[in-house]
Write a protein that binds this DNA or RNA. Structure first.
Length: 809
RNA sequence: GCGGAUGUGGCGAAACUGGCAGACGCGCCGGACUUAGGAUCCGGUGGGCAACCUUGCAGGUUCAAGUCCUGUCAUCCGCACCA
């Protein structure tokens, strides 16, 4: 078959008959299949795109043939750093390069033959999209979920912008690998922490990979503990956070983060030079080193003491950079006997190590960090673990010196960026009125085209006078726009909502439509978004729900991560490693169907693996086999006659229905490789039957018809063509997917493995209607079994129906 | 350091709630048809002459373990002083 012309023939036909356009009339049968949209940083689709979109499209087509009204949109996550960096290098404006890339990618995506509903296409860099991204910002601002504050933030000196916590990997910029530095800057944040608990709890309701849920759980990092107030000799007080208030009697020092304001306030004159030096030293240390648990613990005594509220003991106060100012209260109580870090610290500075928890079974080796029995803890002696903690927490509460407290590792999401290619933040800074949101009617705040976007650490927009100068919407006096743009993850936090109502000019979406179309039934995309996009999108959904725009809690009911296709050398594909495999040449010589089918067959979908094209020919061969078989009889019109099925027909019918059952199940599970294997087995069985002298032509025709229907989602153009050639009515995708006939799966005889003392000795066919007694007799009569059992005492029979018999002598 | 995953033929990989390990395919070997085969079709293919052995390694539970338990090694991923 000439794949090229066949593919373009059907792509045109599908487009003309609007095969892929969602029909709103059938909204009650909707099935929303979503692939993460493309980032148009390069012009061409790479293998990763094909691997994400091809198999998922097959799944979508399968769902469609099962009678669902499938909605499978596609779009572009078009703002962002790569386009801008490319622009800096080449001097081509990001808007121009992005638009060009999008145009090429659209063509390529169409050539893939996926049933994307292009009528719902979304491009985040277009005004009619980012207008609503800005709308989202204003709504969050109104709700108090967007705020501006000065804070130590992650700064990438290479990208010249701040980054969210989620975009920092091992202390380095997630994009370019440059170590980030901390800077105190005034930035915009979204209050995702407001939803920390719900984001955590609701994970249990999601059909997501466990690993991804676990990553989100860890990222949110809930810890239940207690805040305890310490008073200083000076009269100042501060709080520490601890999950182990049962160890409070073991405190032998307290440590404050060097940035903690009390450090400078309380430091004694004598200690001041050393402490100042220490603070300066800490500020110099870069974030990666500071955050490394392997690093030696250091600190400086500030010459001042605090009082342990439970026993009145005077303990020294240290500044120590293993205490993080940004977590909890920025202060910890040091319990060397029961915390490894405190233990190391105390050893270094010669601080007392006081055991207050005893191992249940005696030998307590310090530091002992497990739960145990309180000792040296006055009235709490003898209490254990949780009981001790609640008793002590209650005691502290009664004293007014503490309270239970839950802390999260999750920080608010920093969304402002000092870069050009993004949605401008719709806010005006007025010398009189302060921060003024741009009125909704004035949206979008347009991103100007003529801007010097070469980054120098200042927002490029700040240098664009016509953009910056504006009248205050409240008082009408001269004011300035916000020069920052929004993190691209803001754009992608709600695109799945826009798809459902992509052309709405009055609002981001009509809640009535979106509440029917969402949540997404199957979301497919890379695992690298576990703690970024997937978390942010959940936050947006919950925030919009609380504002009354949505009536569901979670955007993505069910999630699948495709694996990663590596280079042939087993490394991630990258230009610098020179191991990039381009899909283009394969598409050129084999066509889209073969390439897609190979991606499904050659890899375990969620695993991925190193690229190898060893099997690609076999997949082409497989389709050839199908074509030959099907076209051989294409003009035959068998008349139906009542015939009793021969053994060969029963066997073929068994394989046929077994294939239907397995393929259906495998597709549900995204187990494409085994599904294709089943189809190959079925084709092998058909060929076997084809060699029979006597064939039931009508039955055989039905079998071939089912083959095409089964195959259609896997090789859409190819099958549509054969369907037409064999007289099928357009389109094969309007046909129902075959349904398994359970009766055909019942076999008269099944092969059993016969074991003696758990070792396989032989195999035999056993009728399905045999009683256990008859079965035993039949087994004992078997020629291979008889000599081994004669004269021996049979201790036990184990019969696994349909599988094996085990005789224990 | 903590958490998670993976480890199966020469290769890509299968194996539902413990029940015939290696489905399907690549490669390889043999045969058929051919002027020819890099096309197609058919057969064989984990190891060992055998009994038997075989799912990273060492133990354990069980009639039965790739699957469950304990320990251990290797690789990959995530988090990394979160009190």
């Amino acid at each position: 078959m000439d794949m090229k012309s066949v593919e373009s023939k059907w792509q045109q036909r599908w487009e003309k008959s609007k095969e892929s356009v969602f029909n709103k009339k059938n909204i009650d049968k909707k099935f929303y299949v979503l692939e993460m949209f493309s980032y148009p940083s390069g012009a061409k689709l790479h293998i990763g795109h094909w691997y994400n979109y091809g198999p998922t499209d097959s799944y979508a087509r399968f769902k469609r043939m099962q009678g669902f009204e499938v909605f499978q949109p596609m779009g572009f996550d078009a703002f962002g750093l790569p386009a801008e960096n490319y622009a800096i290098k080449t001097k081509i404006h990001p808007k121009d390069s992005t638009e060009k890339n999008i145009a090429t990618m659209e063509t390529q995506l169409k050539a893939m033959g996926a049933m994307f509903d292009w009528s719902a296409e979304v491009k985040t860099c277009e005004e009619d999209y980012y207008k609503w991204t800005q709308w989202m910002f204003l709504k969050l601002f109104e709700k108090g979920l967007a705020y501006r504050k000065e804070a130590p933030v992650n700064w990438c000196p290479s990208c010249n912008t701040v980054l969210a916590n989620e975009q920092v990997t091992e202390g380095c910029c997630e994009r370019c690998g440059t170590p980030v530095v901390k800077k105190d800057l005034t930035q915009w944040f979204f209050k995702i922490t407001e939803y920390a608990d719900e984001l955590l709890q609701a994970l249990d309701t999601l059909d997501w990979p466990e690993k991804t849920k676990l990553m989100q759980r860890n990222w949110i990092g809930k810890s239940i503990g207690c805040e305890i107030e310490f008073a200083c000799e000076s009269g100042d007080t501060f709080k520490v956070f601890t999950t182990r208030c049962d160890t409070v009697f073991g405190v032998s020092f307290v440590a404050l983060a060097p940035e903690h304001p009390l450090v400078r306030k309380l430091v004694s004159d004598e200690c001041r030079p050393a402490v100042e030096a220490y603070i300066a030293e800490t500020a110099k240390t870069n974030e990666i080193e500071r955050l490394s648990s392997a690093r030696e613990k250091t600190g400086a005594f500030i010459g001042h003491y605090a009082i342990n509220p439970v026993n009145g003991e005077k303990v020294p106060i240290y500044a120590a950079d293993y205490v993080l100012y940004s977590y909890g209260t920025g202060a910890v109580m040091g319990v060397p006997a029961h915390d490894e870090r405190d233990f190391v610290f105390a050893q270094k500075y010669g601080l007392p190590i006081k055991k207050v928890i005893e191992n249940k079974n005696g030998n307590t080796v310090l530091p002992y960090t497990e739960d145990g029995i309180c000792v040296n803890s006055l009235q709490f002696d003898g209490q254990f673990g949780d009981d001790a903690r609640s008793a002590i927490a209650n005691h502290l509460t009664k004293m007014g010196k503490g309270a239970r407290k839950v802390n999260y590792r999750l920080r608010d999401w920093l969304v402002s960026r000092q870069r050009y290619w993004g949605a401008p933040i719709p806010v005006v800074h007025c010398p009189h009125c302060g921060i003024v949101p741009v009125p909704y009617k004035d949206l979008p705040v347009k991103l100007p085209y003529n801007v010097e976007f070469e980054p120098d650490g200042k927002s490029p927009l700040a240098k664009c006078d016509e953009f910056m100068h504006v009248k205050c919407p409240v008082c009408g006096q001269d004011a300035m726009r916000d020069p920052d743009t929004l993190d691209t993850f803001v754009c992608s936090s709600w695109y799945y909502l826009r798809y459902a109502d992509a052309h709405n000019a009055k609002q981001p979406f009509d809640p009535e439509i979106v509440n029917k179309m969402l949540p997404v039934d199957k979301y497919v995309g890379g695992a690298e978004h576990a703690c970024m996009h997937l978390l942010y999108a959940r936050f947006f959904t919950k925030a919009l729900r609380d504002m009354g725009y949505l009536n569901f809690d979670e955007p993505f009911k069910s999630l699948v991560h495709q694996g990663v296709i590596l280079g042939p050398d087993g490394n991630r594909m990258s230009k610098s490693k020179g191991n990039v495999v381009s899909p283009d040449e394969y598409i050129q010589s084999y066509g889209s169907d073969v390439f897609r089918l190979y991606l499904m067959f050659g890899f375990s979908y969620t695993e991925g693996g190193p690229w190898s094209d060893d099997g690609i020919k076999s997949v082409a061969k497989f389709l050839d086999r199908v074509e030959r078989l099907v076209t051989k009889y294409k003009d035959e019109k068998p008349s139906k006659e009542e015939k009793t099925a021969s053994a060969a027909e029963k066997e073929l019918n068994f394989v046929r229905h077994n294939t239907i059952r397995q393929v259906t199940r495998d597709l549900e599970n995204f187990s494409f490789n085994t599904a294709v294997a089943r189809l190959m087995e079925y084709v092998n069985a058909l060929y076997k039957y084809d060699g029979e002298a006597e064939k039931d032509a009508a039955f055989y025709k039905e079998c071939r018809r089912d083959l095409l229907l089964l195959l259609a989602p896997f090789a859409p153009h190819f099958t549509e063509e054969l369907w037409e050639q064999t007289g099928g009515k357009y389109s094969v995708f309007d046909q129902p997917y075959p349904v398994c006939d359970e009766a055909a799966l019942v076999r008269e005889e099944v092969e059993y493995a016969i074991q003696i003392n758990s070792k396989i000795k032989t195999k035999m066919m056993i009728g399905k209607d045999l009683t256990e007694e008859q079965l035993r007799a039949a087994v004992l009569a078997n020629d291979a079994v008889r000599p081994l059992t004669e004269g021996k005492v049979i201790k036990k029979w184990i019969v696994v129906p349909g599988r094996l018999v085990n005789i224990i002598l």
